[in-house]
Design a binder for these strands. Structure first.
Lengths: 202, 202
DNA sequence: ATCTTTTGTACGTTATCACGTACGAACGTA
DNA sequence: TACGTTCGTACGTGATAACGTACAAAAGAT
């Protein structure tokens, strides 16, 4: 386990983490506070505040929290500012769609890092299936899935058992077990699936 | 401007800011990583990780950001976090239903401990809303929500902004921010909502 | 104009962060 | 059982955060 650490040679922004300084300065000025005013409110010295604002120093979590408090924010609020809105809209005609053997998958949640629940709509033609009994699990260990039947009837196969689901039924199960859905009827079925990611890493 | 700093004598929580260490430890263990694994992923030494987890040291923002990155999170996500047998079927006529002022909520996922994603259907009558602008957030820190419009059109209000959603559109956002949906049309709208929970505090 | 106050930052000192090494305990394998 | 590996943490060292003091420049008051 060797960590090579070159001072100031590599990307300085990466070593300094989130760009806190500029935000502190902007907020302080917006509140019409001098460095000494904020030092008084936060209990962090004016020279230190100056260093932080100019990016000369990365404050500890403890000090940053006090700075945020002096700006009437929690630290997570301070860090969230300027992170972008995090409101992502997918229009009905913009869904990412996959097709395979009578099985259509429309993704509804955005492919963002840290996304915790994957939301999709599955349409199965008559006789189609989401997989078969010998397929390995496609979801990571610890995943849970909730599926809601939107249209028609569908069968869930899991743990060597068959569960019949009618229109409007929903089911929740461990998605890291081998499982698949089958449409054994005469018409299309539609299914809303939510897979909540697990935390375990092997 | 004097700051007295006594090692471990005064209130340790105030001097250490947010309780990051316990969260790092809980996440690391949930991901089945050793300190050395996380040191490898984050580029922060194992002894330092140990000190952080035990609250002996407050890391700088730069170091904390690297730790968060090794846990597949941004630092603000890490700071926001707080912390759910098998096949459970809910029949369409067995949904847990709540009603309030033109707003009907049907729960589709079971109320199990450890449940990671809460799935529900919301029906809003004309002029109804899921809440209003002054309601506090009802979801725990770190929650994300994906909502899918099943029928009609609906407006999402969040961050002082209004987002118009049409039939079939979906939206994903931080559910721990104050937000609500409104139906300003002439007929019922229906909405699938998936709220992925934050993680339990360690 | 002069004088005073305010402001941000340079500088030196001290405390603490962050590292690498090494240790003891726990665990796994033969 | 013995041996090897993995794990978390103690320890010492060097780097840097965080402070208080002082300075120069800008702003405000007379």
């Amino acid at each position: 386990m060797t960590t090579t650490r070159t001072r100031g040679a590599a990307a300085p922004e990466e070593t300094n983490g989130p760009e806190v300084g500029a935000r502190v300065k902007a907020l302080r000025e917006a509140m019409d506070l001098s460095l000494r005013d904020l030092a008084e409110r936060s209990g962090v010295s004016a020279p230190m505040l100056s260093q932080v604002e100019r990016g000369e120093t990365s404050p500890t979590i403890a000090v940053a929290s006090r700075i945020a408090s002096g700006l009437d924010l929690s630290l997570s609020q301070l860090l969230r500012l300027d992170e972008g809105r995090h409101v992502v809209i997918t229009r009905s005609n913009q869904r990412r769609t996959r097709r395979r053997r009578g099985h259509v998958v429309e993704e509804l949640s955005p492919p963002l890092p840290g996304q915790r629940a994957d939301v999709s709509i599955h349409t199965l033609g008559a006789g189609a299936a989401t997989g078969d009994a010998d397929d390995p699990p496609v979801h990571e260990p610890g995943s849970r899935e909730t599926a809601v039947v939107l249209e028609g009837a569908i069968d869930l196969f899991i743990d060597g058992e068959r569960h019949e689901l009618a229109d409007g039924d929903s089911v929740t199960f461990d998605a890291d077990l081998p499982h698949h859905f089958e449409n054994n009827g005469k018409s299309d079925t539609r299914l809303f699936a939510v897979v909540a990611a697990g935390l375990r890493r092997g």
